Simulated assay, not measured.
Amino acid sequence: MILVVGSYGAGITVRVPRVPGAGETIGGSTLNIGHGGKSSNQAVAIARQGGQVSLLTALGDDAFADSARELWDHEGVESGRVKATRGSTMAGVIVVEPSGENRIAIAPGVLDELTPEDLDAHRDAFAAADLVVVCLEVPVATAERAIILAKEGGATVLLNPAPATSLRHEVIAMADYFVPNESEHEFYVREGYRAPATQVVVRTQGADGVSITTGDATETLAPLTQHSVVDTTGAGDTFVGTFAAALDAGAELRDAAQRAIVASSLSVTVAEVIPSMPGRSAVDEALADYLNTTN
């Protein structure tokens, strides 16, 4: 079983003909409200790849919370450990210009109230998990506690350090898999973090593929290039979720990473995060073609 600890949030996207000035109202805009939050996205990706997954996050008492539960019920994500409290579910407002340039404002809401003590109340979940996935859209102390509880319970830990945030290096080093993108990796290098020889660093590099480093050995895996890129928003979460599901199913490191490369590549061909995440059979089919061209 995989336990995902972190975030759910609603994404409110407004596409505008231009950004209004101070005090100005403009028409001609379009609105879309969708599911977001890195941890929820990753949990859905895990479920679509056939993984058994439980999500530990926080929701408010609003319509966004109701929508989240409907999503998880539909996708097969176990959500009995989600903290429900009075207040607002995390939401992000994204204003997108015709050029694709965007401006984003995040209201964390009750997600900021997910505490280390809340996690302590679910020690049994950490003890039961084979793999725990943690991102950094929750308070730092909560993310660190999730890693510590997972290791105390004997689980493998995958840390997706997004968004990049200062953590105690000794806690980062506890993660078995450290999975940043290029900018996140650069952030931790600047902070002086050096991965121990026992930690696997899986760095996603977009069109440059994925590099896997263990100790002094690094291997770079080729990307799967798509001719038509529609939306890259959910690619990172698709990669993490697919990678986690493959590892939990017993795949070797290289095989799990290749499967995740294929899934994330398929995701960029479809608009919006949840609709873009491919199912297991789609990944199986595309993976065979990818391996034929890269091996």
Rank of each mutant, 00 (worst) to 15 (best):
L71C: 05
L71F: 00
W72M: 09
W72D: 08
D73K: 15
D73N: 14
D73R: 15
E75R: 13
G76A: 13
V77Q: 11
G80F: 09
G80P: 05
V82M: 00
A84M: 10
T85D: 11
R86P: 07
G87T: 09
G87I: 12
G87E: 14
G87V: 09
S88F: 14
S88Y: 14
T89S: 15
M90V: 10
M90T: 14
A91T: 12
G92A: 15
V93M: 05
I94V: 12
V95S: 09
V96W: 10
E97A: 15
E97S: 12
S99K: 10
G100C: 12
G100V: 08
E101A: 14
E101H: 14
E101W: 09
E101F: 08
E101C: 07
N102M: 08
N102D: 07
N102G: 05
R103H: 15
I104T: 02
A105H: 08
A105N: 09
A105K: 08
I106G: 11
I106M: 15
A107Y: 13
P108F: 05
G109E: 08
V110K: 08
L111V: 13
D112F: 08
D112P: 04
D112R: 12
E113Y: 01
E113H: 07
L114C: 09
E117R: 03
E117S: 03
L119V: 06
L119N: 03
L119K: 03
D120L: 05
A121I: 06
D124G: 15
D124W: 10
A125C: 10
A125M: 02
A125H: 00
A125T: 01
A129S: 10
D130M: 05
D130E: 13
D130I: 04
L131I: 04
L131E: 14
C135Q: 10
C135M: 12
L136W: 04
L136A: 06
L136S: 02
P139L: 04
A141W: 08
T142C: 13
E144C: 01
R145N: 06
R145D: 04
A146M: 02
A146C: 06
L149S: 02
L149A: 03
A150R: 00
K151Y: 02
